[in-house]
């Protein structure tokens, strides 16, 4: 018996979200009284692999197979399921990001397990297994009971803190068999913003809306994000007007985020926008309109003109950061 986590790597590197995931899976392994095994696909150097041992993994299995050079949900989930079976995994835990969500759903079917996506805290009970997730686009929470022998979970990003638990980690290769029929799709070209902090992973998001009047005014938004070590995002109209790239759109039909700090500048706070951000721990709204619905959701608010408030706030933040 074991707990298996799929620790995705990005060009051979792990991220903060990888360690959140391991910390979460390690707590499950402790509750279930078993060991935590990490699985990654592709080339990762030993130093990087060893870092997984800092968060409770006693073994990392590396799958190297040229048929897995491209990310295809069908082939990757086949590889993960084969390893899960070989390791007698009773829990298979993924990050709830774009790839993790897809893999978890497929893996649960392959293993005849039950799946709860987007969990946000440890289970309240192991036997029966009960775990909480968001429902109704963040307007409620639901406790799910999983009654299958094999349990598959995906962990929401930014919802679990990193807990160190250093272990001597064994690094092993695992082989899997990938059939040509497991492919069926072929990526052609990739467009990736390199080095940019992902919106779904950032602890601080500085978001702006139509109140900023035009794309030329985003300098002060980017400056605030930089001071705070976060990244920028935007409301839907801003993305639709192409003032900012679509990848930056947060809200119901864009990205759903849960940073520690969400600063909304010139965003009125339509319910569709709030549905994407209402899991943020602390929300700040800056708006000229005191009736803006965002003030009902925000923890802190400033009624005022963004063009005057934001530069002043940036100076104050810089001063604070300088200590």
């Amino acid at each position: 018996m074991s707990v298996l986590t799929y620790t995705e790597n990005w060009d051979g590197k792990f991220k903060k979200s990888t360690y959140e995931l391991l910390s979460y899976a390690n707590e499950i392994a402790k509750k279930a009284g078993t060991e935590l095994i990490a699985l990654t696909i592709g080339e990762v150097d030993n130093e990087e692999l060893k870092s997984l041992g800092n968060y409770g993994a006693s073994k990392v299995l590396v799958v190297k197979n040229e048929k897995l050079n491209d990310f295809i949900a069908k082939s990757y989930s086949s590889a993960i399921s084969q390893v899960a079976q070989a390791q007698d995994a009773k829990f298979v835990i993924f990050a709830n990001n774009v790839s993790g969500r897809a893999l978890a759903a497929r893996t649960s079917v392959k293993l005849d397990g039950g799946f709860v996506p987007g969990v946000m805290q440890l289970p309240s009970s192991i036997e029966p297994f009960v775990v909480r997730k968001k429902a109704y686009s963040g307007k409620a929470f639901a406790d799910f009971e999983l009654n299958s022998d094999i349990k598959v979970l995906s962990l929401n990003q930014n919802s679990f803190k990193i807990i160190e638990d250093a272990k001597e980690i064994a690094i092993e290769e695992a082989s899997v068999e990938i059939k040509d029929t497991d492919l069926g799709a072929k990526p052609q070209s990739v467009e990736k913003a390199s080095g940019k902090l992902l919106i779904t992973e950032a602890e601080t998001l500085v978001s702006a809306g139509r109140g900023l009047k035009g794309p030329e005014n985003w300098g002060m938004v980017e400056e605030m994000a930089e001071i705070l070590g976060g990244t920028t995002c935007c409301s839907r109209p801003v993305a639709d007007l192409e003032w900012r790239p679509h990848e930056e759109h947060v809200g119901q039909t864009g990205k759903v985020v849960a940073p520690n700090l969400y600063i909304a500048i010139g965003i009125s706070g339509a319910i569709q926008h709030l549905a994407g951000v209402n899991s943020s721990k602390v929300m700040v709204a800056i708006n000229t309109d005191e009736e803006a619905p965002f003030f009902e959701a925000a923890d802190y608010g400033i009624i005022g003109d963004a063009f005057k408030v934001v530069p002043k706030l940036n100076e104050a933040l810089k001063k604070f950061k300088a200590g």
Binding site: W10, F71, N97, V98, S99, G184, A185, K186, P187, Q188, S189, V190, E191, K192, A193, K196, L198, T200, E247
Partner: peptide, 10 residues
């Protein structure tokens, strides 16, 4: 994809 987009044939 996380951090970008990809053209894919299927």
């Amino acid at each position: 994809i996380d951090g970008g987009k990809e053209v894919i044939e299927v």
